[in-house]
Nucleic acid binder design. Sequence first.
DNA 1: TGAATTCCCATGGTATCCCATAAGAACCCA
DNA 2: TGGGTTCTTATGGGATACCATGGGAATTCA
Lengths: 155, 155
Amino acid sequence: MAGFVSHYTNRLDAKGRVSIPAPFRSVLARDGFEGLYCIKSSHCDAVDAGGNELLAQIEATSEAFAKLSPDHDALAVALFGASENPRIDGDGRMTISDMIRDHTGISDQVTFVGLKYKFQIWEPNKFREYSAEAQKRALAMLSGQSPVSSQGGPA
Amino acid sequence: MAGFVSHYTNRLDAKGRVSIPAPFRSVLARDGFEGLYCIKSSHCDAVDAGGNELLAQIEATSEAFAKLSPDHDALAVALFGASENPRIDGDGRMTISDMIRDHTGISDQVTFVGLKYKFQIWEPNKFREYSAEAQKRALAMLSGQSPVSSQGGPA
DNA sequence: TGAATTCCCATGGTATCCCATAAGAACCCA
DNA sequence: TGGGTTCTTATGGGATACCATGGGAATTCA
């Protein structure tokens, strides 16, 4: 319904396939993108994945930076050259490419993490570490900056 | 009525299901959210639950940061990656996931506590402790003593 | 032609749907 | 006011559908 949420860990089979969690599949179906859009995360050992909404986000970011950057081409290469479009088979599975394997360190299990407008593909152990750190960071961020616009509201 | 109020304790059945209190169900129905949105509370052993109103508050929090930035990713993992969307069956029951079990310590009973725009899911004994503590703090605050910050106690 | 991919079907486990029942609350009517 | 009746709600359990996973057969590409 409302974006990618929660996280799931699935097994990789002998052919390198893994089931995309059913709730994520239904979000993708709604998004309408053919297959899946995957791109290396620039700042952690995960791969960002999603459909049109993720793609739009990346394009918007790219355009914003292009205006400030002397060479737009380098940026485009970095963004789009590092991406892939895996297919999704009739049973809702994708194949983990070498690029994903190398970047994430995935061997026999895959963790899918919902980030609302996209989801991330992680090696389970690395995700556990990152998740713990992210919790801490989130707390710091939320207490440090202006409190949540007091939506508390109607009494 | 305008939100989740009061508290109820229900039994968990052999399949891990529990009835959501009927008054809470009618609030959810009015809210219009499909199913239930659940997220770990960051400061106590409970899970926050609700519908669109809770979700909107969380989304507002995450939108304070630019998408695709390291900060936004970390926050999104902490917020959306750590949350879940349980369904509500035709009889008004939800299933208690492992995540909820682990975070709350729930085994065979569940306490639902209304907090107006959301409600919390507690293990009954832990809620009793927390509730007693919360009342002390509330009394201290109301009696004009601003420093409630964990000193030996006003007694 | 050989290796890798894609399509298709089988299976076990789990979650979901549906119906049944009991207890309690609200309601109605005399 | 009291007794009976109806509705709602919580809970239990059987049947069913869905999902993750495994493997064979067909297809593609070099």
